[in-house]
Amino acid sequence: MAEILDLSRLDNLFEEHQGEDGALIPVLQEAQNIYGYLPEEVLRCISQKLKVPLSKIYGVVTFYAQFYLDPRGRHVIKSCQGTACHVRGAKGVLESLIRELKVKPGGTTADLNFSLETVACVGTCFLAPVMMIDKDYHSKLTPKRAVDVLKKYSQKPEREEA
């Protein structure tokens, strides 16, 4: 990876969680908010500062669905595959997204515009089938509508920096 990471952005985090029991997961969550994903250097730095072996951190990061080891797309699509959505045709919606974006769930498009994910339930079953793009809900989708919605996001050039 060519980019150089500014690890000093983690300093506040360590200060805030200093001496806290079980700080690993909140620190990882906040680190991911900073960098968009969890690069190896960041994990090594967290390992050192929190005195948690890297093996354990890697185990935690690969256990929880929320953490990413690779850069994410500018827009994150969460296609809900919960029960209510499933019953109302979420699988067709997902398949149509996969066809359109040419990535599998968990993947990111080559132009880094979209990351496609599935989620087990976003707790908005009345919107089923639903997907979230970033923080917006898109409800009562059909395979075609889902692809139409993407177009709104395809044209936006840059995500504003966090």
């Binding site: 190896e40 072996p53 093996s55 951190i57 890697y58 185990g59 690969t62 256990f63």
Partner: peptide
Amino acid sequence: SMAIDYAHRGFNTKVSVPYHRSLTESD
């Protein structure tokens, strides 16, 4: 040494060093 741990979950659970590298690149 805490060099290894489980990675991933479910059917894909595997004993691993970070990033599935060689033991020589681990603790």
